[in-house]
């Protein structure tokens, strides 16, 4: 029988991460909220990559989840390399990891676009999709062959946490990792919104989104703009990979698929092509998963997320913030 990689019993999104100390009598609601926001931030960052690429070239970059996985691996490798040369001061190490991994993952994003998508630009819609699926299979197995199939546990790097609003006994525990993840996501979101709305690159991107041919006629370097979009998407995915590594303390070659599907779901739920939509979609998917896990069952959390996606799309066929497609007769 043809065997393609399958999902196995591995730590997965939405379950309480192993590094996180179980909260004391906080109840269920608030931890679920905090976990959901954290998870949603990671989804949101990956979803931005999907949404940006979709906006500009109109294709589903199926390999994006695997670029995220490569980003997580690269973060781990860079972190270990830094440790081995003696940089053990955690804030400095993390900052270096962030930038080096971003650069290296961006190189992967650039290469994927150059090899698998650019030759197919302007071609039939399904060709880049199949090419992207091929790229996804390639990256997944590339990571498996080069780094091994076993998952890599990393001892907690950032520990500790804070209890907020504990005065009346109704506090909530938020770990430092969660604080870092949410703050970093907010910072990146602000930065990206500024890039898209204020810089030349952002203007070029929006121009290419509207009409690629016209943009080229007006002197926008379309190839470069598209390449940079992939680079930005990959860099964000790499940050998400680092966050995943810190939050769950484990990486393996298969995390890309699950994360990719969820993030893509988030992008579509928010309205594909819309940056705030991707973030809102990510948060929603994260919250649905953690709340479903907390109140109903962990097993069916993905079913819940997918079902809500389908229900939302029945009533809003272009997602929450997507532009409705006008049927021009």
């Amino acid at each position: 029988m043809l065997r393609l990689p399958n999902e196995r019993a591995r730590p997965s999104f939405g379950r309480p991460p192993p590094t996180q100390e179980t909260p004391p009598a906080d109840g269920v609601f608030r931890p679920a909220l905090v976990n959901g926001v954290t998870l949603g931030s990671i989804y949101g960052l990956i979803a931005i990559g999907y949404t940006m690429v979709y906006g500009i070239v109109g294709m589903i970059n199926f390999a994006h989840g695997d670029v995220f996985m490569i980003g997580a691996f690269l973060s781990l490798i860079v972190f270990l390399a830094l440790t081995s040369i003696g940089i053990t001061f955690v804030p400095l190490a993390l900052l270096l990891v962030l930038f080096v991994a971003m650069a290296l993952t961006a190189l992967y994003g650039w290469t994927v676009e150059r090899v698998a998508y650019r030759p197919l630009r302007g071609s039939f819609r399904l060709a880049p999709l199949i090419s992207a699926i091929g790229m996804s299979i390639f990256l997944q197995n590339y990571a498996q062959v080069t780094q091994g199939a076993r998952f890599k546990p990393l001892p907690p790097v950032v520990t500790g946490g804070h209890k907020f609003g504990a005065v009346d006994g109704f506090g909530v525990n938020i770990s430092n990792v969660q604080i870092i993840i949410v703050l970093l996501t907010v910072a990146l979101m602000v930065a990206f919104t500024l890039i898209v709305s204020r810089t030349n690159l952002g203007r070029a991107q929006r121009a290419c989104e509207q009409d690629r041919k016209m943009a080229a006629l007006l002197g926008v370097d379309v190839d470069r703009t598209i390449s940079l979009t992939f680079v930005m998407g990959a860099a964000l995915a790499s940050v998400a990979g680092l966050m995943y590594l810190l939050y769950y303390g484990v990486v393996d070659f298969y995390i890309g698929f699950v994360a990719g599907v969820k993030a893509f779901t988030a992008a579509v739920l928010g309205g594909i092509g819309s940056l705030p939509g991707a973030m809102i979609g990510g948060l929603l998917i994260g919250l649905i998963e953690t709340f479903w896990s907390a109140y109903f069952s962990v097993e069916y959390k993905d079913v819940a997320a997918f079902s809500i996606l389908i229900i939302v799309l029945i009533f809003l066929p272009s997602g929450l913030l997507g532009r409705p497609e006008v049927e021009k007769v």
Partner: peptide, 16 residues
């Protein structure tokens, strides 16, 4: 182990 790597690459190449 290299089979799926080749498989993925071939998919890309055929589409191109």
């Amino acid at each position: 182990d290299y089979r799926l790597i080749i498989f993925g690459l071939v998919m890309v190449l055929i589409m191109v």
